[in-house]
Nucleic acid binder design. Structure first.
Ligand SMILES: [Mn+2]
Ligand SMILES: [Mn+2]
Ligand SMILES: [Zn+2]
Ligand SMILES: [Zn+2]
Lengths: 148, 148
DNA sequence: CTGCTTGACGCAAAGCGTTGCAACACCATT
DNA sequence: AATGGTGTTGCAACGCTTTGCGTCAAGCAG
């Protein structure tokens, strides 16, 4: 999960505060972890990283903060087709949607942006009169290194 | 979830037996429920329907049978972007992939097949050298009736 | 049809995410 | 800087899903 180069440090915190959301010590820790992540993290990984900064942080706070970020459209929740377990993974919502390809053998996750992907969404909006707020395109299979 | 008109009764059971999977009374009940479903069912709904046929059937058996069907690529597991709760929904794997559009207001789920969707997959196979076994496209937003 | 092997079932317990509630701390106001 | 109202936290309890294990039955061999 390459961080967007346009990423401003503290952008998540700024976004929340500008919406009148109260900022706490725990939230700052969690936001920082998500902003500086170099891969898709699950709740347990976020908790472990947070516990290094504040050993008293509770797992409930992790879940509630992730829920908050989801509700505000600031992070997306992925299941990567449950290839890597039953849990969910989280990433900052990007400017432009991308799809995720998860390798069933090695577990590597690739990201891919595509004009065709954007065009499918346009087609749905037009043909189905459906107003899209959220789109997820996940693929499972064998990556270039693992296919024979 | 419209059942494919080409559906053969007992096709799931036939598919499992032909792979050397042992058939049990409980599995027959669960397969029948999934095959005759007219909408996406979650584990609790499947258990309730199964209990009407055999009150002694255990929920663990529901989960294990769903796992079996998933592993064999006979059913797909959807989360519908968790718009309708945290659980998962199950449907027979169709001949041709379709996407799901879930309305954030009324909860209605529409299905949609699209050539563009198929073309995105072709592009991924070609450009990323990724061999696709599984693809899921889920959309959330407002349906035609709910958008203003 | 009978017996045997092996996989499947049910039960109990563990795992993981959610919810209710009382104490706390953020931050706007003074 | 001190105060107060209100949203947030941690803890405990709950609910849904998974896992371990002993018993049972599907279905093949004889
Ligand atoms: Mn991503
Ligand atoms: Mn999910
Ligand atoms: Zn791979
Ligand atoms: Zn609607």
């Amino acid at each position: 999960m390459p961080l967007p180069e346009t990423e401003v440090p503290g952008a998540l915190q700024t976004a929340l505060v500008s919406r009148g959301i109260r900022m706490t010590r725990q939230r700052r820790i969690i936001l920082e972890i998500i902003e500086t992540a170099t891969q898709h993290l699950d709740a347990a990984q976020i908790l472990r990283k947070a516990a290094r900064v504040d050993p008293n942080i509770n797992r409930v706070t992790i879940y509630r903060t992730l829920g908050l970020l989801k509700r505000h459209g600031l992070v997306d929740e992925l299941d990567l087709l449950h290839v890597k377990g039953e849990g969910h993974f989280y990433e900052r919502r990007p400017q432009r949607d991308h799809m995720h390809m998860t390798c069933l053998r090695c577990g590597k996750v690739q990201e891919f942006e595509s004009d065709l992907f954007d065009r499918v969404k346009g087609q749905v909006e037009r043909d189905c009169h459906f107003h899209i707020l959220l789109a997820r395109f996940e693929i499972g299979g064998y990556c270039a290194s693992c296919r024979k």
